[in-house]
Simulated assay, not measured.
Amino acid sequence: MLGMTEEGRYALRFERHLPYPRHKVWRALTDKSELRAWFVSVVDYDRTDFEPAKNANLTFAYATGDTPGHGVVTEYDPPNLLEYTWDNETLRWELTEDGENACTLVFVTTFDDKDMSGPLSEGWSTGLDQLADHLGKHPAQH
């Protein structure tokens, strides 16, 4: 769903019910080895433990060899909320428990160019499908 922020930016909102515990989904959103299985690029954090933290710098490396993207973690509240910038985009991942072994993921991407809404909608819809497929192929980890 396309909307507008108070700052006049465009926002696409996706909501997915996932039949997996929140800790498993959180790990898929934050662990570099899991991100490699479904995310569009490889994400590197500027910390030695390779986990996000507020104000951590991010590098988004592409398999195609394109110039890496950059960002900063702006919100970090495990296992509930992760928000970061990726060049001119802001990505916000919110998880809420939805029963004992399920959760709801609300993902919002915020951007400036309305013409990007179609490609971003298609791309993130595919990415969220890949996340769900990845989660279904791997047993829960604690």
Rank of each mutant, 00 (worst) to 15 (best):
K24L: 00
E89A: 10
Y76D: 07
R47D: 08
Q130Y: 12
P78H: 05
G69V: 02
M4F: 09
T67E: 15
W86R: 02
V106C: 02
E6W: 12
G99T: 10
W26Q: 04
F39Y: 14
A63N: 10
T126A: 14
E75R: 04
E15T: 15
A140K: 10
M4P: 01
W93E: 01
G118S: 05
H23T: 13
R9H: 15
P68W: 05
T109I: 12
D66L: 07
A11F: 07
G8Q: 11
E51L: 13
V43A: 04
F107C: 04
T90K: 12
D112I: 00
L105Y: 03
G99S: 10
D115N: 12
D133I: 13
W124M: 08
D46Q: 03
D129N: 11
H23F: 08
P78W: 06
C103I: 03
H134L: 06
H70Q: 11
M4Q: 12
W26P: 01
P21C: 06
S117H: 08
T59Y: 06
T90N: 08
L18H: 10
S125H: 14
V43T: 10
T126S: 14
L105N: 01
G136I: 07
P68E: 02
Y20I: 03
V42N: 05
E100F: 09
D31V: 05
Y45E: 05
A132Q: 15
R22S: 01
H23N: 10
G99A: 10
A132I: 15
D113E: 10
K32A: 07
F50Q: 14
Y45N: 04
L128Q: 08
H23R: 14
Y20W: 13
L105A: 02
T30N: 02
N88G: 06
S117V: 02
A61Y: 12
P52Q: 11
Q130W: 09
L2N: 09
V25A: 03
C103V: 04
D31Y: 04
L131A: 07
E122H: 09
L120K: 09
N101H: 12
F14T: 08
L58Q: 11
A132W: 09
L82S: 00
V25D: 00
T126F: 14
L91A: 09
R16T: 14
K24T: 03
F50A: 14
N57T: 13
F111P: 02
L58T: 13
D133K: 14
F14W: 11
D77I: 08
D112G: 09
E7F: 09
W124Y: 14
G127L: 12
K24E: 03
R9N: 13
E97R: 07
S33Y: 07
W124P: 03
P119M: 03
W26T: 01
W93I: 02
